[in-house]
Computed example of a mutant assay.
Amino acid sequence: MSSDRRTLLADAALDVLADDGIRGLTHRAVDRAAGLPAGTTSAYFRTRAALLTALVRRLVQLDQEELQLMGEQVLVRDPAELADGIALLTRRRLTGEGRRRSLARYACAVESVRDPELREILVPRENAGRAAVRDFLSSQGVAEADVESRSATLLACIDGLVFDRLVTGGQVSREAIEGLVAAALRG
């Protein structure tokens, strides 16, 4: 089976999930979104669980690629630069294609509460963005024993702000980001 076709179907499934929510994610809806004949999705992903797993794997792949690229492009030498990088990420997660992926990501996160396989795929992975936050905190004198937990807390707070803005509208303010960076430095 073609991995290109699987990727096309996983991308179409992401679109369906972003547009129609978890209840709208069906094989037939994915076929329509991909512009393929009825039955194509079920030929590649026999069950809804298999389709959802493929969607989540693709989502994580796209997120990892985005974070890797950002990690290569964004320098983090001081609190302002870290806030700049976080602001860029939140804008990407709240607009355009990033917004669609965010909507799909949160729907999958809720679904993973009842599905250990999905939960395992969605567990935060090592990536350039996470490493940049840890390296920054270390370079600012945060005790090595605290770096991992402060990094995780900062990233979880950013994730929560993105979720809140998806629900309520608007962008994450620069002041909120700067406050979270300052809190991560203070402990």
Rank of each mutant, 00 (worst) to 15 (best):
residue 1 M to G: 14
residue 1 M to K: 02
residue 3 S to H: 15
residue 3 S to G: 12
residue 4 D to E: 14
residue 4 D to H: 11
residue 6 R to F: 01
residue 7 T to P: 07
residue 11 D to K: 07
residue 12 A to M: 08
residue 12 A to N: 11
residue 14 L to D: 01
residue 15 D to K: 11
residue 15 D to M: 08
residue 19 D to M: 03
residue 19 D to A: 10
residue 25 L to T: 02
residue 28 R to A: 08
residue 33 A to Q: 09
residue 34 A to H: 01
residue 36 L to D: 11
residue 40 T to Y: 00
residue 43 A to V: 01
residue 43 A to I: 00
residue 44 Y to D: 03
residue 54 A to S: 08
residue 55 L to V: 10
residue 56 V to K: 07
residue 58 R to L: 06
residue 60 V to S: 03
residue 62 L to D: 15
residue 65 E to T: 08
residue 67 L to M: 10
residue 68 Q to Y: 09
residue 70 M to F: 01
residue 72 E to V: 05
residue 73 Q to R: 14
residue 76 V to N: 00
residue 76 V to W: 00
residue 77 R to P: 09
residue 78 D to K: 08
residue 79 P to C: 05
residue 84 D to S: 13
residue 86 I to N: 04
residue 88 L to S: 10
residue 89 L to E: 10
residue 91 R to K: 06
residue 93 R to D: 12
residue 99 R to L: 07
residue 99 R to P: 04
residue 100 R to Y: 02
residue 105 R to F: 15
residue 107 A to H: 04
residue 109 A to R: 12
residue 109 A to W: 02
residue 109 A to S: 09
residue 110 V to Q: 07
residue 110 V to W: 06
residue 110 V to L: 06
residue 114 R to K: 03
residue 115 D to A: 13
residue 118 L to H: 05
residue 120 E to T: 14
residue 125 R to A: 14
residue 126 E to R: 09
residue 128 A to W: 01
residue 130 R to C: 08
residue 133 V to A: 13
residue 134 R to E: 15
residue 135 D to N: 15
residue 136 F to R: 08
residue 141 G to P: 12
residue 141 G to L: 06
residue 146 D to F: 02
residue 148 E to N: 04
residue 149 S to K: 03
residue 150 R to Q: 08
residue 150 R to S: 11
residue 153 T to N: 03
residue 154 L to Y: 08
residue 155 L to F: 01
residue 155 L to M: 09
residue 155 L to E: 11
residue 157 C to Q: 12
residue 166 L to E: 10
residue 166 L to K: 09
residue 166 L to A: 05
residue 168 T to M: 11
residue 168 T to L: 13
residue 169 G to R: 10
residue 176 A to I: 00
residue 182 A to Q: 07
residue 182 A to L: 09
residue 182 A to I: 01
residue 187 G to I: 01
